[in-house]
Design a protein around this nucleic acid. Structure first.
Length: 474
DNA sequence: CGGTCATTCATTAGTGAATGACCGGTGCCCTAAT
């Protein structure tokens, strides 16, 4: 059967999007693949379609529980019944049942943390996995080194699964990140598909101010005269709430989102935004992954992101529909401060490493006493189980210097006098092929194309059935 | 770096200024306590 026929019979699509065919062909041939496809290019089809041709299960490593739930729901909606997410949402009974029937699933979604647990490994050993997928594979290098070290351990599952082929998917990866993905997933000679990272319909703007008050004044007047939906990225949780409050005061439809909120509140905000009931979300960098909304017109950065990669990911959430979208980066003197210090705090300190190394049995106590941070302990434990204390210290120094380089690239972007699009693409080790007419602040921007806020239809208030019935009756 | 919170001080009573310490973002896990 031809691929198009499978595509049509299983999913009802009649043609592939750019890149999909190339990637899927290689997967079916049995190659390992690293695929860099921009947001909104149908990455998930790259493993969904092969699942209908390969004999065994497709195991998908996914970074967020909410993303997993989403993907499962989406597959079920398309009529796929044999799909499951293994995570902490499961009740013990459900979990027990899943272990019993594990081999019968066509798709299994799992977090890296769950994947490396000994019991889970033992369960997965019993089944036939044809394809291991690392979804959002840039997380390996974005989070693996300082935040979620289990991301560096995904390859441990390969011998247990008797070396299935591997597919790594991401929208943003520099050459360095691509190499790290290859190294940590133990891919010898993968087929690498790289789509251009450039998003032609995104226009890059930078606004500079003397202090944060001016920034705020600009933001409120900008939001009032701009068409949503839009995301405003703030540097801290508190700031995201503050900005949302200020906008709401002006009668603008806005809310906030950050990692410190209750899970259900986060889900609620995201859904409101996706349903078009909310024009603006003020958030930390927690917001965005797994947000499927195609018509985001604006992404504003109220503070600097910590890397160009992070910036591109956040900006990339705009304009998935292909229509013009504006990315505005706001800068006030002194803004680098927060950036610098956040980045300095990311990695375990020398003191933390030395404490854990000299009291390995009391590590948990060190966390309880507030001497070592919990995240730091996990990162230290990962490295100390592989390297000596002095090697670990050296590794952290090295990672620190890499982070400083990333921050410097971001600082350079703010002060750029040449084309921003060109600079960004070069940060991703690619070359720009042709500039759009509306390009960036340094090449001149036509602001008229991004739309003005529309008069919203009055919100429909759902009446109770009694009231509606009464209204119908004379 | 910049904002916030706690402490200190002067002093005769509850507050207000000044100083210094501290913190800031991203998520999985099924733990222990309700």
């Amino acid at each position: 059967m031809k691929l198009e026929e499978v595509l049509f019979s299983a999913y009802g699509f009649s043609s592939f999007r750019p890149g999909q065919r190339e990637v899927i062909e290689q997967v079916i041939k049995g190659k390992d693949v690293v695929a860099l496809l921009p947001t909104g290019m149908g990455k998930s089809m790259c493993y969904q379609l092969p699942a209908h041709i390969l004999p065994g299960t497709v195991l998908v490593v996914s970074p967020l529980l909410s993303l997993m739930q989403d993907q499962v729901a989406q597959l079920k909606k398309m009529g796929e019944k044999s799909v499951v997410a293994i995570n902490s949402f499961l009740k013990p009974q459900e979990r027990e049942k899943i272990w019993q029937t594990l081999g019968s699933y066509r798709f299994i979604f799992i977090s890296p943390e769950m994947l490396v647990q000994p019991f889970v490994k033992k369960q997965l050993e019993k089944i036939r996995v044809s394809l291991l997928v690392a979804d959002e594979a840039h997380c390996i290098s974005q989070w693996g080194f300082d935040f979620r070290p289990d991301y560096l351990r995904i390859a441990e599952i390969l011998p247990i699964l008797k070396f299935p082929q591997v597919l790594a998917l991401t929208a943003t990866a520099t050459e360095k990140v691509t190499q790290e993905i290859k190294a940590y997933l133990k891919l010898d000679e993968p087929f690498i598909y790289k789509h251009s990272m450039d998003r032609k319909n995104i226009v890059y703007d930078i606004k500079k101010f003397e202090d944060s008050r001016q920034k705020l004044e600009w933001l409120t007047s900008f939001v009032r005269k701009s068409a949503g939906p839009g995301i405003i990225y703030a540097g801290t949780r508190r700031k995201s709430q503050e900005l949302a409050a200020i906008l709401m005061d002006q009668g603008i439809s806005a809310s906030y989102y950050h990692g410190g909120m209750e899970h259900q509140d986060r889900v609620f905000v995201q859904q409101q935004f996706q349903n078009g009931e909310l024009d603006w979300v003020c958030s930390t960098n927690a917001f965005g992954m797994g947000v499927h909304i195609s018509n985001i017109r604006h992404v504003v950065h109220f503070q600097l992101p910590t890397s160009v990669e992070g910036y591109v990911q956040e900006v990339g959430r705009a304009g998935r529909d292909g229509e013009a979208a504006l990315a505005t980066l706001l800068y006030a003197e002194g803004d680098e401060g927060l950036l610098q210090s956040l980045v300095m705090d990311e990695l375990p300190t020398r003191h933390e490493i030395q404490q854990v190394a000299s009291h390995p049995a009391r590590a948990d106590q060190l966390v309880a006493d507030g001497i070592v941070r919990e995240t730091a302990l996990r990162v230290i434990a990962y490295w100390l189980s592989r390297l000596s204390e002095s090697e670990t210290l050296r590794q952290m120094d090295f990672l620190q210097s890499e982070k400083i380089k990333q921050v410097d690239k971001m600082k350079k972007l703010v002060n750029l006098e040449s084309c921003i699009r060109e600079y960004i693409i070069e940060c991703f080790d690619q070359h720009l092929k042709g500039k759009p007419e509306n390009c960036c602040v340094n090449d001149g921007i036509d602001y008229t194309v991004f739309g003005k806020p529309q008069a919203k239809p009055q919100k429909v208030v759902l009446e109770s059935w009694q009231n509606r019935l009464n209204a119908l009756l004379p």
